[in-house]
């Protein structure tokens, strides 16, 4: 069900970060989410971390290397949610 979760996360990203004119199809699961690719910034990273906590009960360290790896792209984010969701 990786694709269903990826689609769910795409909607979470678009809604939480109020991305204008971005559809789920615009988010490539393998492309970087931050700076390049989708072009998110550090405030988005904090906002997304909060959304993961609220939605899936996942708590991350704000600036750890591990968090950077999880936030690399949509696939890594989906793997994180799959492994650590508490709902």
């Amino acid at each position: 069900m990786a694709n269903a979760l990826e689609l769910e996360l795409k909607h979470l990203i678009i809604d939480t970060l109020e991305l204008e004119d971005v559809t789920p199809d615009d988010i490539d699961p393998d492309e970087p989410l931050f700076v390049e690719g989708l072009g998110l910034d550090s405030i988005d990273a904090l906002e997304l971390g909060l959304a993961l906590q609220k939605t899936y009960g996942i708590k991350l360290e704000a600036d750890s290397e591990e968090s950077r790896r999880h936030f690399a792209n949509l696939k890594s984010l989906a793997a994180l949610v799959e492994a650590r969701r508490v709902d």
């Binding site: 405030i43 988005d44 904090l46």
Partner: peptide, 9 residues
């Protein structure tokens, strides 16, 4: 309630 970082900024 946790604060929204974007709104805070």
């Amino acid at each position: 309630t946790p604060l929204s970082p974007a709104r805070f900024s």
